[in-house]
Design a binder for these strands. Structure first.
Lengths: 390, 390
DNA sequence: TTAGATAGTAAGCTTTACTTACAAAGTAGT
DNA sequence: ACTACTTTGTAAGTAAAGCTTACTATCTAA
C-alpha cells in the first residue's frame, strides 16, 4: 500500500541521502556532497548541521584548495553510536554491540535452558548488551530462523514451532525505547554481506547460507526481497535428488538432505561405518570439522559426498540465476571451510542446467564475513533503515 | 542510486496517491479520500481540483448523507485520455489505442517486411495510432521480446540479434513528445494481468507466458522485478529434461524444447508421422490449434505430450514458488487453450518438488486477459508510471 | 596586487501540506 | 418546526523545507 508524503519524510530522505553520500565517500566536503546529491549547498549545510548536532558527522580538517577557499572535510563518526545485534540461529543465542562500521565491539552468548528458546533469554541478553554499550543506541537488529513478517517485525513461525506470531519488534521497542528490526537469519546474512562484504558497485546479490539448514537471502536493487506470505529464499526443502533420503519435513531428497552440514556429516558417518573405520561409533563423533579434515586429506569417498552436496546447491543456484537474472552468488556458513572444490561442484551443475554463457557469467564466491555474518547483517538492517546507508 | 526529494516530487506522489485511491474505489468523495490516504481534506481538495482541471477526474453526483452534508462523488474519467500500446512479440507488430481502463479502442497490425523487423515499421504503426486516438495521449508503452533495460527504455538485445542497444524510449519520446516506457513482453504481460486481471488484494504474482518462447514476469509487492543485467524471468533455457532434445540455443532439454507451443507441435507431428497418420505431412501442417483439437478428442499420446509439457513448466514453477515465496501463478499464451489438464500436470510436478503444504497453497490459474495481455500490460506500464495507479 | 574561483553561510522566497475556522447542508431528538 | 449535532467542502493563514540570491572568507594564479 502506498502512503502519503509529508515534509518530514522529505527531510528524512534527504538526510539519509547526505548520510549515505558521506558514508560512501569516507571523507567529503559539504560542497562536494551538494554536487553529488544535486541538493543545494545551503540545504546540505543545514542537513549536515543536524547530523553534527547528533555527533554522527564530524569535521576532520581542511582539504587542499582547488582554486578557492579550502573545503572542510566531513566524515561519519563510526564510534558515535552503537547498534545491538542478536543472532538466534543457534541453540546458543549470540548478541553483540557493534559500531557503525559493523565491527563487533563486545559479544555475549546465552545458551538455551532446558533445550528451549525463550523470550526471557533474549531480554536477559539484550539487557546485558545495553549495559555494555558505551554510546547512544541507534537501534536493535535481530536475525532469526523461521518465517518472519519483516514489515512488522513479527516472528510468524519459528522452525521449532515454539513461537508463533511473536511481535518481537514491538516487544523490543517498548522495552528499550529504540527502533528494532527483525529479519530471517539468512536474509540478514545477505544484507550483511551486501553492506560490509566489499561488493563494489553491485546492486544485486544472492547469499546462500549452508549450515544445519539451508536458506537464501536475496538482495535486488540494494533491497532485501522479503517475500510474502511464505518468505523468499526458503530453499531448504526443494527436492534436488531423485529417490533421495527422507527429510525431517516428511519429503524425500530435499536440498537439506543432500547439502546441509548435517547431511554431509551423516553421509560421511555412514561411509566410515561401512568401512568399519574404528575411529567412529556414533554420528555425534563425526563433527563437520572432522569431515573437513578427511576431505583435505584427500579421502576420495568423502570428496564424492562433498561433490554431491555442491551439485545439490548448484541445482538451486542455477534456478536462482535463471529466474532472477542475478549472477552474484556467495555461499556462507560452515561449508565455506571446504573451499573452492565446493564452488567447482556448484558450477558443474549450473553449467549442466543453464546456458553455458550464463553459467560462466555467474560469479561464485564465499561470503567474506565469516561466523559474524548474521550479527553484522542484523546491524546492517538497522543502518539501512535508520541511516539509509544504501 | 538514491535521489534527492523535492517539493515537486512530494506533490507528484501525493497526486498519484489520490488518483490511485479514486481509481481503486471507483466512486468516492473527497472526504473519504482524505480519510483513506490520511491527507487532510484541504490538501485532497486542492489535488482533486488539479486532477479535475486535467479532466482526469469528474464529479458524478451526490451520495446519500451519512449524518451531515451529502458527499460529492468523484470518479476517474477513463475516457479522458488515451494510451498507445505496442506489442512486438510477433512477426506481425500489433499496436492499439486504449482507454484508461485498459480497454482496446482501436487496433492495427504491421507485418514484417522481408522477414525483418525495423524501427520504421514501429514509427509507421505509432503514427497511425496517434492519428486514430481521439483523446490527449498519456503515454506510449512497448512490450517487446529480448533483453530490455527498462530503467532507460533501451532494447539491449533482441532475440533475433537484429537490434542491440536501441534507445527506443528516447526515440519515441522525441518523436511523439509524450512519455514512453519499454519492457520485456513477458514482464509487461505480468504487469497487465496484475493491473487488470482481477487479482483482489494480491501484491505478488508470477505470470508465465508460454507461446513460441517461454518467459516469466514477476510482480513483487506491486512492482515488476526487472533484473539486471540479464533480466528476471528468462526461464526458457533452463534445463528441465535429462537427455532432452537439442535446443536452438545449443543446449539440450531446455524448457522451450519441452513446453513451448512449437515444441508441443513438433512432438505431436513426430507422433502422427510415426503412426503413419495420413492427415499430416510437414510440421507446418500441424498447427497448435490442431493439437488442441486432438487433445480434446482424447488422443492418449497427445495427452502425454501435453502432460510432459505441463510437468516441465511445473519444474520451473516449483522453483519460482520455492525461491521467491510467491504463490500466485498464472499461465498465459497459446497453451491456455489446453485447459485445466495442463494446470494439473504443472501441480503434479510441483507436489513432487516442494513441501506438499507449499504446493497445495500455490494457486495455479490461467491469465484472464487473453491475446491482448501484452498490449494491456504495456498500457499498465504507462498508467503505473504516469498516474501511479498502484 | 588584483582578478577570479571555491566554500560556506545568511536572509528571504516558493512550494506544499497542515491548522483553524466557517459556511452549507444534512440528521435526529424534542 | 426548532435546536443541536454531523459531515462535507472551502478559505485563509501557518509551518516545514528546499531553493535563490547575495555575501564573506579564503585560496590560486597572473
Amino acid at each position: 500500500m502506498k502512503k502519503k508524503v509529508t515534509h518530514e519524510q522529505t527531510r528524512v530522505l534527504n538526510r539519509q541521502l547526505v548520510t549515505k553520500t558521506i558514508y560512501d565517500a569516507g571523507e567529503i566536503s559539504r560542497a562536494e556532497v551538494a554536487r553529488v546529491t544535486r541538493l543545494t549547498r545551503p540545504t546540505v549545510s543545514d542537513l549536515v548541521a543536524e547530523l553534527m548536532s547528533q555527533r554522527l558527522v564530524v569535521e576532520v580538517g581542511y582539504a587542499p584548495s582547488t582554486g578557492g577557499k579550502r573545503p572542510m572535510l566531513l566524515r561519519i563518526d563510526a564510534d558515535a553510536q552503537n547498534t545491538i545485534s542478536i543472532d538466534l540461529s543457534r541453540k546458543d543465542f549470540c548478541g553483540a554491540v557493534l559500531d557503525l562500521r559493523g565491527e563487533v565491539q563486545h559479544r555475549e552468548y546465552r545458551r538455551w535452558r532446558n533445550d528451549r528458546p525463550s523470550l526471557d533469554l533474549i531480554f536477559e541478553l539484550v539487557d546485558s548488551l545495553v549495559a555494555a554499550a558505551d554510546r547512544p543506541l541507534l537501534g536493535i537488529g535481530v536475525g532469526t530462523p523461521g518465517l518472519i513478517d519483516a514489515a512488522h517485525g513479527v516472528v510468524v513461525a519459528a522452525v521449532n514451532q515454539e513461537w508463533t506470531n511473536v511481535p518481537l519488534r514491538q516487544l523490543l521497542e517498548e522495552r528499550y525505547g529504540v527502533p528494532a528490526y527483525v529479519a530471517n537469519d539468512c536474509q540478514a546474512a545477505a544484507l550483511g554481506e551486501f553492506t560490509f562484504g566489499n561488493v563494489n558497485g553491485v546492486q544485486d546479490l544472492v547469499v546462500i547460507s549452508v549450515g544445519w539448514g539451508i536458506g537464501a537471502g536475496i538482495v535486488v536493487n540494494g533491497q532485501l526481497l522479503h517475500g510474502t506470505p511464505f518468505g523468499a529464499g526458503e530453499i531448504g526443502h526443494i527436492v534436488v535428488a531423485e529417490n533421495g533420503e527422507r527429510c525431517s519435513c516428511g519429503g524425500f531428497g530435499c536440498l537439506e538432505t543432500v547439502s546441509s552440514s548435517q547431511a554431509i556429516v551423516r553421509q560421511v558417518h555412514a561411509l566410515l561405518a561401512r568401512r568399519g573405520d574404528p575411529r567412529v561409533i556414533s554420528p555425534e563423533q563425526v563433527s563437520f570439522d572432522r569431515v573437513c579434515e578427511l576431505f583435505h586429506e584427500g579421502d576420495a569417498e568423502v570428496r564424492e559426498v562433498v561433490r554431491a552436496a555442491g551439485r545439490g546447491l548448484g541445482t538451486v543456484a542455477a534456478y536462482l540465476v535463471g529466474v532472477l537474472g542475478i549472477y552474484h552468488l556467495r555461499f556462507a556458513g560452515q561449508v565455506t571451510a571446504i573451499g573452492p572444490f565446493l564452488l567447482e561442484a556448484v558450477r558443474e551443475e549450473m553449467v549442466r542446467l543453464l546456458l553455458p554463457a550464463l553459467a560462466d557469467e555467474a560469479q561464485l564466491e564465499f561470503a567474506t564475513l565469516g561466523s559474524d555474518i548474521v550479527l553484522k547483517g542484523a546491524s546492517a538492517l538497522v543502518l539501512h533503515h535508520e541511516l539509509g546507508v544504501l
